[in-house]
Computed example of a mutant assay.
Amino acid sequence: MGAILGDDTARYLFNATQVRTPLPLTRGQKVDFVPGADLQATEIFALQAVAPPTWAGQSVSRGGQFDLGRVIQRTFTTIRENAAIFFGAATVMVGAPSAVMGLGQSTVVTDGGAAGFLTMAAGWVFYLAGLYMVQGMVVKAAINGFNGKTTSFSQAFDVGVKMFLPLLGLAIIAGLGTGLASLALIVPGVIVAVMWSVASPAVVVEQRSIFESLQRSRDLTRGYRWNVFGLMVIYVILSWIIGAAVGALGLATGGGFFDGSPNLWVNVASDVVVNILSAVVASAGVAALYYELRTVKEGAGPEALAAIFD
């Protein structure tokens, strides 16, 4: 038997059967674990006491500096390396429901009948389900990719199905919290969004509960929130650029920047492309950010993260 002093200052008891790493645990060593009932520690992983393995030819030292460029590079590198899985899943689970929503919306505008509302509602439900399944799949494949491992579509899909409900619940709680913080001023809402920015990988990778994942995200982002905010600004600007490109397409087909395109299929296709890109880039970006924060704060290399899936 042993005891672990958690970041919440509570003492968690454990036995050797819960240790998931071949490294011997020594007094004072940092570990990662999943808190269980009655202050019991489970799924214990010893964090590396030396520099973690390299990734993509780069070395990352424990306790090093947060590198914004490195996060962006990892984001688009993992997208390139897993393009078939990411875009295949997003096309089916996000793109197709987006097309159904677009057609339903067009029917509502032209006919105003109940069929259009039902079509739009059905598309929205399937879009919501697909979006969070894709998020789980992307995090799974991205973390494995950081460890130099390949991920099959079926392996990623299994994680997406398993993590759908926890991620949906997390999104609802985080959305309510951010919304309430924004009621007073926009700044508190932004702060909350930054603090909770890596809660979803904590759900998928560490298999924590919703509220534990929110607290975990607060702990990981502490001391690096300006960096995280800067990354969020970059992604927002990127989304604006994509939106401007879509607006230009609508203008080229006879519409206007405010009225959109009169061509139904151009509108639907534009929404589908934007939603697919947004789902993939946002999910991969969050996975890369989570990995960077764990590396610079805890020295957890890619092998430690991927081991949770093994």
Rank of each mutant, 00 (worst) to 15 (best):
M1R: 06
I4L: 06
I4Q: 02
A10Q: 08
A10P: 02
R11Q: 10
F14R: 06
A16M: 15
T17K: 03
Q18G: 03
V19K: 14
V19C: 13
V19H: 13
P24Y: 09
P24S: 12
T26H: 13
Q29P: 09
D32S: 15
F33A: 07
P35E: 13
Q40G: 15
T42Q: 10
T42N: 08
L47I: 12
A49K: 10
A51Y: 03
P53V: 10
W55L: 07
V60K: 09
Q65H: 08
F66T: 01
D67M: 02
L68N: 13
L68F: 13
G69R: 04
R70A: 15
R70V: 10
I72V: 13
I72P: 08
R80W: 10
A84H: 09
I85N: 04
A90M: 04
M93P: 08
M93I: 00
G95N: 12
A96T: 12
A99P: 07
M101C: 13
G104M: 06
V108W: 07
V109C: 08
D111E: 09
G112R: 01
G112M: 05
G113R: 14
A114F: 12
A122W: 01
M133P: 05
V134E: 02
M137I: 03
V138K: 15
V138R: 15
V139Q: 07
G148Y: 11
T151E: 02
F153Q: 09
F153P: 13
G160Q: 05
G160R: 06
K162F: 14
M163F: 10
F164V: 07
F164T: 07
L165Q: 12
P166D: 08
L167K: 12
I173V: 15
G175Y: 03
G177Q: 02
G179P: 00
S182T: 09
L183I: 08
A184D: 04
I186V: 02
G189C: 11
A193F: 00
M195Y: 00
M195E: 07
W196T: 07
S197Q: 14
A199S: 05
A199W: 00
A199H: 06
S200R: 06
S200K: 01
S200A: 10
P201L: 01
A202R: 04
E206D: 13
R208L: 10
R208I: 00
R216T: 03
R218E: 12
L220W: 10
L220K: 09
T221C: 01
T221L: 00
R222C: 11
Y224L: 14
Y224D: 14
G230C: 05
V233H: 07
V233Y: 02
I237Y: 04
I242N: 02
I242V: 03
A245D: 03
A245I: 11
A248I: 09
A248F: 09
G254I: 05
G254Q: 02
G255I: 06
G255Y: 05
G256M: 03
F258M: 15
S261A: 10
N263L: 05
W265P: 02
V266A: 02
V266H: 06
D271A: 12
V272G: 00
V273P: 03
I276P: 14
I276K: 13
S278P: 04
A279G: 09
A279S: 13
V280T: 04
V281N: 00
G285W: 00
V286A: 15
A287E: 08
A288K: 07
L289C: 01
Y291Q: 15
E292F: 12
E292A: 14
V296K: 11
I308N: 05
F309D: 01
F309S: 01
D310I: 05
